[in-house]
Design a protein around this nucleic acid. Structure first.
Length: 403
DNA sequence: GTCAATTCACATGAAAGAGACCACGGTCTAGTG
DNA sequence: CTAGACCGTGGTCTCTTTCATGTGAATTGACGA
């Protein structure tokens, strides 16, 4: 693009009326002032937590529900209100929210407790201390003054998967040792069968109250989208059927409101970029494709070298074969690639795990099958369109210095 | 033809090691009075 | 004498390796009809 052309582009960009009024409303971390279709859940959570205002320990709550069903939103909403009242009445109520999925924050026992202590203003080194020591520090802080702590552990299943259920046991057990303070835990999980695998003692104490968030249906999603889009878009920008289609798409994927909102937002961005005056239905299809592609590229880019090499091997084989790929083949090619780029090859055991991890990330589609007499292996298929494969391969080649 | 045993090519688990990062306490060293 | 540099020990955490065990159906081969 030449300079004058670029200038013209910027100018016409400015002249053009933006479609958005406030894009933030459509972001997933935005908290609306009223939450639709979750009255019942808000009510229940509120009732359970209310004793906190009298400094009685509320029951621990366990909240289940698929992604994008408003679990986090609802809990945060209730707790925020609770906190405000507590503040007005001068009650020593402390709320801490952790997302256990975020790396380096709360995904191990040590880090969780250390982070907790930090929330109270105590400096804890990232590593180097025995976990026991950090527990003691935390304990001491709590005993300094009378208070009630509500600990919200989002994506608690991730925490337990990585660090075991001992943390939860320790935390719930702490209550009996604490004299001045009490801890109440709200666990949020989108894995419905998660509690089946944890220690029954932990389970019973953690899920004193259980709450299930059903997925939104298409009508409810429409409501939510309508409500948010009123604040996000200019009036009359959305052409008919757009909201319905977004809702339908998201409803198909187990009623994920987050996804519906993202879809709407990206569709708006696409429309804006193409210079359209309104957001049309076609833009949603483009948006869906774009979201998927961006996510994929982002994930691929942030993978470590070893993972990238394995993925590259898979893609290479797939390109030649245009068919299902097996673990053994991948490992052979992978070893060659490692040689080529001077990477120490990992054992097959590890590569097997890496393939499983790539599958978890949704980049590839792997399932274990038995070929009878010819052994048992993972059958790897690719779900992305061919154009994406080429793209990703290119990125990998750059990342791995393959020419 | 039927049925159980065999066999393959990995999958899956558990445990332990390597190496990076870090805190803490003790010892050494250089600068100061 | 003392502050700061430097070391050794012991801790966490992530990524791997090693060793061991599991697995599911095609194949094989014995058996009976």
């Amino acid at each position: 693009m030449t300079e004058s052309k670029l200038k013209g582009f910027f100018e016409s960009f400015l002249d053009k009326e933006p479609l958005f009024v406030n894009k933030k409303v459509l972001l997933s971390n935005y908290t609306p002032e009223c939450i639709s279709h979750r009255d019942e859940q808000i009510d229940v959570v509120g009732k359970i937590l209310a004793p906190a205002l009298r400094l009685d320990k509320p029951s621990n709550i366990f909240v289940y529900g698929k992604t994008g069903t408003g679990k986090t939103l609802t809990v945060k909403y209730v707790v925020d209100n609770l906190k405000n009242v507590a503040l007005e009445r001068n009650k020593p109520l402390k709320v801490i929210y952790f997302n256990c999925k975020l790396k380096k924050v709360a995904d191990t026992e040590y880090r969780l407790i250390a982070q907790l202590a930090r929330e109270f203003g105590k400096e804890i080194p990232a590593t180097g201390l025995p976990t026991e020591e950090v527990y003691k520090t935390f304990f001491k802080i709590l005993e300094e003054e009378e208070q009630l702590l509500i600990l919200i552990l989002d994506e608690i299943d991730q925490l337990v998967k990585k660090a075991g259920d001992e943390i939860l046991y320790n935390l719930t057990r702490m209550n009996s040792d604490l004299e001045k303070s009490q801890i109440s835990i709200i666990g949020i999980s989108n894995d419905l069968i998660f509690t089946d695998n944890i220690d029954p003692r932990v389970k019973s104490s953690l899920s004193e109250e259980e709450l299930v968030f059903p997925p939104y249906n298409a009508m409810q999603l429409q409501d939510i989208l309508k409500q948010r889009s009123q604040n996000a878009f200019k009036e009359g920008v959305l052409s008919g059927g757009v909201i319905e289609k977004c809702a339908a798409y998201a409803a198909r994927e187990h009623g994920d409101a987050r996804r519906a909102l993202e879809l709407l937002r990206v569709a708006g961005e696409v429309a804006e970029r193409t210079g359209s005056e309104t957001v049309k239905i076609e833009h949603i299809d483009d948006a869906e494709e774009k979201i998927e592609k961006d996510r994929m590229l982002d994930v691929v880019n942030t993978q470590p070298k070893q993972h990238q090499s394995v993925l590259y091997s898979i893609l290479s084989i797939y390109e030649n074969k245009k068919n299902i790929v097996f673990t053994g083949e991948v490992y052979d090619v992978y070893k060659k690639i490692c040689n080529k780029i001077g990477l120490r090859p990992l054992t097959q055991r590890r590569v097997s795990d890496i393939i499983a991890e790539l599958d978890m990330l949704g980049i590839i589609n792997a399932r274990t099958i038995s070929k009878g007499r010819y052994g048992r292996t993972r059958e790897i298929a690719l779900t992305m369109p061919d154009s994406n494969i080429v793209n990703i391969k290119k990125i990998l080649e750059e990342g791995l210095n393959l020419s």
